[in-house]
């Protein structure tokens, strides 16, 4: 079978969207930077990058972007890291804020403290190929997950990589590691859904 190159958008309001676009291209997808709601129409999936979720929300709250993106992630695959995981969660704490509610989980913002508490370490995951390096930067914590959520990796007893159906979220930044497995997994999810 010839593998197709799905078109995956990266929400590019602000944050590390370039790093995601690079990893997606390396993983066999075509990456498009998304800044306007009408761009969603031509995409097979979307990545919401790390950055400041509150800043991204300001833009999403204009021009019907939030409604359109909520509908998009309901029908198409999506993947969020850090701020992106916050936006995909059903409930957000510290403080509470609006979200796309695509994964049945509760996420607490800035749960590890400040930048000085940012850290890198290796964690075992359900992805094949050994432990995954995880870069945590002012990371949020997944404090609760619903019954339909598959935990793909846990750090201690906290979920850090989760999936529910066609939606995946990480509280760390696979886009900042050389290891491409998480992005390859997402590109595979998008291909399956074409």
């Amino acid at each position: 079978m010839v593998e197709t190159s799905p078109t995956i958008g990266v929400l590019a309001i602000q944050g590390d969207y370039d790093a995601h676009a690079r990893r997606l291209e390396e993983s066999g997808a075509r990456a498009v930077l998304v800044r306007k709601p009408e761009q969603l129409d031509s995409l097979d999936g979307i990545v919401i990058p790390g950055g400041e979720s509150s800043t991204m929300l300001k833009f999403l709250e204009r021009d019907g972007f939030l409604e359109k993106l909520t509908e998009f992630v309901r029908v198409k695959p999506s993947f969020g890291t850090c701020a992106g995981a916050i936006l995909l969660a059903k409930n957000v704490e510290n403080p509470a804020q609006k979200s796309l509610a695509a994964i049945d989980m509760t996420v607490k913002r800035n749960a590890y403290g400040r930048q000085i508490d940012s850290h890198i370490h290796e964690v075992t995951s359900k992805l094949s190929g050994g432990p995954l390096e995880m870069v945590f930067i002012r990371a949020p914590k997944i404090s609760a997950t619903g019954a339909g959520v598959d935990v793909l990796a846990e750090d201690g007893d906290e979920p850090v990589l989760v999936r529910q159906g066609k939606t995946m979220a990480a509280t760390f930044h696979p886009e900042l590691s050389e290891d491409k497995r998480v992005h390859e997994e997402f590109v595979r999810m998008v291909r399956e859904h074409l």
């Binding site: 590019a12 309001i13 602000q14 944050g15 590390d16 969207y17 370039d18 790093a19 790390g50 950055g51 400041e52 800043t55 850090c82 701020a83 930048q115 940012s118 850290h119 890198i120 870069v135 930067i137 002012r138 930044h173 900042l176």
Partner: peptide, 13 residues
């Protein structure tokens, strides 16, 4: 990487 990582998160802002 952690130090530049936070700067990455601030890009575009």
């Amino acid at each position: 990487r952690l130090k530049t990582g936070l700067a990455e998160m601030l890009k575009g802002g």
